[in-house]
Design a protein around this nucleic acid. Sequence first.
DNA 1: CGGGTGTCTAATGTCGACAATCGACGCTGG
DNA 2: CCAGCGTCGATTGTCGACATTAGACACCCG
Lengths: 221, 221
Amino acid sequence: MTIVKKTYKDQVVDHIYQMLLSDGLQPGDQVKESLLSVQMGISRAPIREALKELMMSGLIDYRPQVGNFVPVLTPKQIIDSYTTRGILEGYAVMAVSEAFSADDMDRLDHYVDDMGEAACQQQYKRVVDVGGDFHDFMTAKNNNMQLIEFTSRLSLKLHVLFYKHWGLLYSPQEIEQRHRAIVDSIRAQDKPVIEQVIRAHYVETGTKIAAVQIAQSETAA
Amino acid sequence: MTIVKKTYKDQVVDHIYQMLLSDGLQPGDQVKESLLSVQMGISRAPIREALKELMMSGLIDYRPQVGNFVPVLTPKQIIDSYTTRGILEGYAVMAVSEAFSADDMDRLDHYVDDMGEAACQQQYKRVVDVGGDFHDFMTAKNNNMQLIEFTSRLSLKLHVLFYKHWGLLYSPQEIEQRHRAIVDSIRAQDKPVIEQVIRAHYVETGTKIAAVQIAQSETAA
DNA sequence: CGGGTGTCTAATGTCGACAATCGACGCTGG
DNA sequence: CCAGCGTCGATTGTCGACATTAGACACCCG
């Protein structure tokens, strides 16, 4: 078994993740310590630890003396977060672009093929998964731990908060085209272009998600 | 009174800050919850909250089931952190470079003058303070909250961990010259150069601090 | 003499109860 | 009817005690 042992805190973190990924917790909901402690059969102490951790990941909005809430992000905040991810990932890839071998490039191409295929078949979960692998593989060569820490934290936040929307954003052609552009820029070894392409990719993704968000809130109203 | 300490947790955070800024806590030291709780006359609960917060700021290195330690950073980690700060701040300034008015540029020049003067008089604390104001003013126009969050977190971490070394790095001429180069690049409105100059500034600063760190450890050995 | 094992200790992890605080509601007075 | 104020309930903040675990040290066995 791969899982050896987990502290209660980590179980709580996972539990809340799942609540966020499913519709168990919606933006704006309050996450009450005592309720969770009853539901999970443990005391409030590990709950608080977990909430503190999630708060620092940006997955929980904490207001002192009031409570913990599922964040309600404005369109600007969404775009800002994606923009920032583009800055970090753009640099991470650009800085080590010469480290990509021919095999690496083939692998990246393969990822893009997979994504396009999955998108055509409307297998949105697979698009997301392969897309994650694609980005992980691209950034894995950069070993700047500080950069990795920020990137993965932000990545997790965006993943959890917007997992539900990831099927609606791009047409299969767009998905394939956008990611192919990134691969091509790496192959061309043009560092400024690499950085700019990746930044643009995330800015546009953020803008689209913000638009979806707006559309949904208007439908609800 | 401008600031009212509300919770014990915040007091503990401040207390540990001071311990880190002075020599009360040295890299590698373990920060024991029970000891602090006795010293401050409070229970371990708020101590744990504070340590959790400091851990997420990168000021405390936490090992599960073992304890909390003052981080011992390798030269690479130091350089990586400064590099990352350069990435974030470089983008933050570059993205809004057109927003700087003539008055703003005068103000930036004034900061640089002050820093050079303070450095000549070996008033290192003033150099650090004015330098902080300089960077704050430059980045203040960018209202990307995600970017600001990462930048200020990283800034705080670097400030606390390396406050002691900030007098030894540059000659007065170098200090003035380096910051003037940044101001000039903004004045020239050349975005790629702005980003590159700020990045280079931080990479070099990180490299120097790492070198100082190595020299000190060798002296101690 | 060296490797492995058992115990012991000091630190973190968790618990249930109590205190302090914020926000909501209803009351009062104009 | 509305504005201001006081009370109340629910939730977070803090507490002291107990459980659990990583690491150190001594011991045993080959």
